[in-house]
Each structure stands twice: as structure tokens, then as C-alpha cells.
């Protein structure tokens, strides 16, 4: 190859070094530094102060509420994701692309608007507000509202991961199972599930990370009642705005950052270990 054509195939070394340096500097300053700072602040006053911050009753209540919310919202969206992916990936029907677009809709709605939708429906001045008040049912400023808002913002996660994966896998294996006499559910558990398990886990991980960390939507519906309707992100806001509790805010934040860190690690492990099975996920534009 002539010198000229080589130079047209790759950038000269100084350009390569420059681009790599800019990339690494950008990632280090923009992504790594904030993460390091969270842990540095959380442990700024030592392990004892960190442990003490987490012993607070209201903080404990917020951790429990976050876990409970995720424990309800994530399974709901998982069942939905599998059902939606089954219908969309394995069958042909009219309006399929519209349905796929509608499933993604919550991603382009501001979390604050998401929370507001449920306030307009179930709040004191909402459509169903008077009826709910009459029957003494609390949705807004209570757990049901927090769950609804969380379900809305994490709505597409599982479905989005499963649809391309199941589309790529086709229907041959399932049809073989049926031909061999398997029942519908047996076919699903023994053929479909093993095929999609890693993609499913991947979607559930992302859904869970967002569910536990959601702030804007939950902030609208929760009403910020200390020890009652504060989830971990809301508790972080409360502590952060109290000058005396600054490092306590970072102590709680470090727990959520750890969750994010573990999610990333698992996600990368899945991509590395089961990358071939997840290949369909990377192909989408």
C-alpha cells in the first residue's frame, strides 16, 4: 500500500493520541470525578459518621420505602415487558409499530409531568379525588402514588430489551416444542425463558436502577412526609438542604451510587459473558 493510501485509512499518530487524550480526559472529569466525590464526601468524617448517618430512623424508613416500591414496580413492568415482547416479536398484526412507539412514550415525558398526571387523576382536586376521599383511599402522598409514578418512568425498560432479542430469535424453536406436544406454558418456561433470560435480567437490572433512583416523578406524588413517604432520593434532597446533614446526604447517596455501580458491573459482565446472546440488543439504532 502506498504511503498516501495508508494515511487515508487511519489518522496520523498525533491525531490518534490527541483524540484518545480528549476522550479519557472528558470521561475522567465528567463521569469518574463525580462518582469519586460521592464516596469521598460520604466517608469524609470517617466510618463512624457514615454508620451514624445511616442509623437515623427517617433514613431507614426511606430505604425500606425505596426497596418496597421497587419490589412492586419492577415485577409489574417485568410481566408487562415479557407479555408485550411476546405479542410484538412473535406475531404479525396491524398497528405493531404504533404500539412499539407508544411503549417508548414514557421516555420522552418529563418525570415531573409523569408525576403530575397521577396528581391530576387522583389528587385532592383531581378527577377521582372527591370519590377517593369519600372512600378514604389514599393514592397521592402515599405508597400507591409512588408506585404508579415509578411504574410510569420505568415502563419501557424490560420491553425495550426483550423485543429486539425475541424478534431475532424467531419462532422455530417454540413451534418445534409445540409440534412435540408441549403445552403453551411448558413451551414458554422450557424454550422461551432459557433463550431470553440474560436479556430479561439485563432489562430488569436497568429497570430496578431507575426505579430505586427515581426522583422527579416521585417528588411530585410523594408529598415529602418525613419518615413516611420519603424514598431514598427524596431523603437525600432533604438532608442535602439541611446544612448540618450535608455528609449524611452523601452517605445515603453513596448507597444509591453503589447500586448504580453494581448495576453497571453486572451489565458489563452480562455483555462480556453472554454477549452473543445479547447481540440483537446492540444492533438496534
Amino acid at each position: 500500500m502506498t504511503r498516501r493510501s495508508r494515511s487515508a485509512l487511519a489518522e496520523p499518530a498525533p491525531v490518534r493520541w490527541l483524540l484518545t487524550a480528549v476522550t479519557l480526559a472528558f470521561l475522567a472529569l465528567f463521569l469518574l470525578l463525580p462518582l469519586v466525590l460521592i464516596f469521598a464526601q460520604a466517608f469524609a468524617h470517617g466510618l463512624d459518621a457514615f454508620a451514624h448517618a445511616l442509623e437515623d430512623d427517617d433514613t431507614w424508613a426511606s430505604i425500606k420505602l425505596t426497596l418496597l416500591t421497587a419490589a412492586i414496580a419492577v415485577p409489574l413492568n417485568t410481566v408487562f415487558g415479557v407479555a408485550a415482547a411476546w405479542a410484538i416479536a412473535k406475531f404479525e398484526f396491524r398497528g405493531k409499530s404504533l404500539l412499539t412507539t407508544l411503549i417508548d412514550l414514557p421516555f420522552s415525558v418529563s418525570p415531573v409531568i409523569a408525576g403530575m398526571l397521577f396528581v391530576l387523576l387522583f389528587g385532592r382536586n383531581g378527577w377521582l379525588g372527591p370519590w377517593l376521599a369519600e372512600h378514604d383511599i389514599k393514592i397521592i402522598f402515599a405508597l400507591p402514588g409512588i408506585v404508579l409514578a415509578t411504574v410510569f418512568v420505568t415502563f419501557p425498560f424490560v420491553a425495550r430489551e426483550l423485543i429486539p432479542l425475541m424478534q431475532a430469535q424467531g419462532t422455530e424453536e417454540e413451534q418445534a416444542a409445540l409440534t412435540l406436544g408441549a403445552s403453551g406454558w411448558r413451551m414458554f418456561w422450557h424454550v422461551t425463558m432459557p433463550n431470553i433470560r440474560w436479556g430479561l435480567l439485563y432489562g430488569v437490572l436497568l429497570c430496578n436502577a431507575r426505579a430505586m433512583g427515581e426522583f422527579g416523578a416521585v417528588s411530585v406524588v410523594a408529598g415529602h412526609i418525613r419518615g413516611l413517604t420519603n424514598t431514598m432520593p427524596l431523603q437525600i434532597e432533604l438532608l442535602y438542604n439541611d446544612p448540618g446533614e450535608y455528609s449524611a446526604a452523601f452517605a445515603v447517596a453513596s448507597l444509591l451510587a453503589l447500586l448504580g455501580f453494581v448495576t453497571l458491573a453486572l451489565k458489563n459482565f452480562l455483555e462480556w459473558r453472554h454477549g452473543d446472546e445479547l447481540a440483537a440488543l446492540r444492533g438496534r439504532g
Binding site: 463521569l31 436502577a209 433512583g213 432520593p233 437525600i236 451510587a257
Partner: peptide, 21 residues
Amino acid sequence: AMIDLPFALPTAVAGIALTTL
């Protein structure tokens, strides 16, 4: 692996970290 960090880090956590930074 770090590129996805903004997806995985809760927004309130990112918010107070960026502000302090």
C-alpha cells in the same frame, strides 16, 4: 464501562455530586 454511569446513577445523586464538584 463508565460511559453508562449517567444511566445507572440516580439523578438526585448526580445532582448533588455535580453541584459539590
